[in-house]
Simulated scan of single mutants.
Amino acid sequence: MRSVELFGGAGGLALGAGLAGFEPSIFVEWDKWACDTVRQNADSGFDLVKNWNVYEGDVRAVDWQSFAGEVDLVTGGPPCQPFSMGGNSRAADDSRDMFPAAVEVVRAIQPRAFILENVRGLTRSAFANYYQLILLRLQYPELISHPGELWLDHLARLQAEATSSNNHLLQYNVLPTLVNAADYGVPQQRHRVFIVGFRSDVDAHWSFPAPTHSLDALLLSQWFTGEYWDRHKIVESARPEKPKGIETRIERIRRSDSSGTMQPWRTVRDALEGLSEPKLDGSGPFLNHFLQLGARSYPGHTGSPLDMPAKTLKAGAHGVPGGENMMRNVDGSVRYFSIRESARLQTFPDTYELHGSWSEAMRQLGNAVPVDLARITASSVSSALEASKSMQAPRLRLAS
């Protein structure tokens, strides 16, 4: 099946979609460094990306009409910038907000489905009306805003359309879901909202994949069965201190109905298994695996514990809040994750090379969608599309 990738970054979402069986007709990203990452991997023969058509530039500059009728899936993670409630005219459509651009692509291409990913901050109460606007615009991509129209007025028109029984517009069934990547086997606590839509003629019967991993299962494997420590060959003296009150929690977990149905959350230690310690010169068999000096711990900046999933990797390099880009060892010492270690936390393959300096590569990884989570999501959409008896919808009239 064919797809297009918007705001592609280092390629996490597109790689996951590729593993799910989608082939991008075009991969669009404005950032040169991210495009160089994809091109470098294509040049080295990385199978999933070797035939990608990389477009370095603004998604609004692409002739999307030329892809109409040829695309099953649109994927992308639009950057969502702050907006002003008091702004006039197209405040929600200013140049910093790419959701309108994503809607325009859907309107032009009319794909059978789309997957858009963004930070969970989008779902905060402060953005409730704007979030509703995004969902309704994706539901009715042909109901565009008028020149000079306030976005709240556009929202009112969309709400009226959603409660009307007489519309003939192109329509999508839109389903947003807030997920934690750790619940799907990603060794990182990364909360994101996925907005998935199916064109209304697609009989999808789709729901977001159920979680497969849990904190409770991890705690059982660490502090009840000991399987976690045995698997890593960690003797008792080298283990972290047992958490306070863990016996009471373990007993509660054991009594729960779901105690044996989930796999353990994957930890930093799990993710880095088989990697040697990074060296200053980066020598060794692994790509992008060199030591970055300068990490230090202080209150509020303590790094990711070795035996839990990592904190959310951030696009910043040094000094990001909480020390998300640092690892904290059992003895309390800290160091920065190497690029390769960070790529493991984002479930990129070891043979996928990140282009640029440590700080540049960390920026790309901090902005990326975990490949495994993208694969799981795209695979579920692929299965729904394969199972549906949908036919390509005819071109519909544009809304006035």
Rank of each mutant, 00 (worst) to 15 (best):
G148F: 08
A101I: 09
I115N: 01
A128V: 12
S125N: 13
S125F: 10
R112V: 00
E142D: 13
A162Y: 03
L138V: 10
I109C: 10
E149N: 04
P176F: 08
A102M: 12
R107D: 14
V174P: 04
V106E: 07
L116I: 03
D183I: 01
Q159G: 03
F99A: 02
L152T: 15
Y130Q: 02
N129R: 14
T177M: 06
A182K: 01
L175W: 01
V103A: 11
A108K: 14
L150R: 15
W151H: 11
A160C: 03
L175I: 13
P100S: 00
R157I: 04
H154V: 07
L143S: 10
G121R: 03
S145L: 00
D153G: 08
P187I: 10
P100W: 04
S164T: 11
G185K: 02
G121V: 08
D183R: 05
V119A: 07
A156S: 14
I115F: 04
P187S: 07
V186M: 06
W151T: 06
M98E: 01
A108G: 11
R120A: 13
V106I: 15
A113V: 08
P176H: 07
F114C: 08
D153F: 06
A162G: 08
L169C: 10
G148I: 06
L155F: 11
N173G: 04
S165M: 10
R112K: 15
P176Y: 08
F114R: 04
F99M: 12
L138K: 05
N118P: 09
Q188T: 02
L150H: 15
F127V: 05
Y184L: 01
I134M: 13
L136T: 09
N180A: 05
G148L: 06
G121M: 09
E149A: 05
V103T: 12
P100L: 03
A108P: 02
N118S: 09
W151C: 07
A101W: 09
M98T: 05
L133C: 10
L150I: 00
A113K: 01
L122A: 11
V103M: 02
Q171I: 00
R107W: 08
T177P: 09
T123F: 01
E149R: 07
D153K: 14
H168I: 03
L158K: 10
E142S: 14
V119N: 04
H146T: 01
L170K: 03
I115P: 02
L158P: 13
P111Q: 05
L135Y: 03
L133H: 14
L155R: 09
P100Q: 07
H154E: 03
Q139S: 12
A162R: 15
V105K: 07
L133G: 01
A108F: 00
A101V: 10
M98Y: 11
V119K: 07
L143G: 00
A162Q: 14
R137I: 05
W151Y: 13
A162M: 12
A182T: 05
G148Y: 09
E161V: 14
V106S: 06
P111D: 05
L122E: 01
L143Y: 05
P147K: 12
P111N: 02
N173L: 11
T177F: 01
Y172A: 05
L143F: 05
E142W: 00
G185N: 03
Y130L: 12
F114M: 08
S145P: 09
A162S: 15
E149Q: 14
